[in-house]
């Protein structure tokens, strides 16, 4: 299992567009990808769960990857957060 904490830089938080990019990226990997925000744990492969999680700008998000290709998954998702999901 690999874990890293990142910050949401998107001004409007993880709304539909970034949530779509994130879920698509997470779905590529065999490992489980979980986002931990406060007490909430969210399946990063589900756009609906991400949207429902209401993750706002400035929030600290713990990315937890567990299973196959976990290192690759973590580094790609980390980079997506840093780039503001291309926004």
């Amino acid at each position: 299992m690999v874990v890293e904490t990142v910050k949401v830089v998107n001004e409007q938080g993880l709304h539909m567009r970034p949530a779509g990019v994130l879920s698509k990226a997470a779905a590529k990997y065999g490992c489980d990808v979980t986002l931990k925000v406060g007490e909430k744990e969210i399946n990063a492969k589900s756009i609906m769960m991400i949207i429902g999680g209401c993750i706002k700008c400035g929030a600290d998000v713990e990315i937890i990857c567990n299973g196959e290709q976990e290192e690759d998954a973590l580094s790609e998702i980390k980079a997506l957060f840093a780039s503001g999901f291309g926004e």
Binding site: M16, R17, G20, S23, N43, S46, M48, M49
Partner: peptide
């Protein structure tokens, strides 16, 4: 167009 593409992603969401 992106709104509609978002609908495709939402509808094929595994949770749904």
């Amino acid at each position: 167009a992106e709104i509609l593409e978002g609908h495709v992603i939402m509808a094929s969401d595994p949770a749904l």
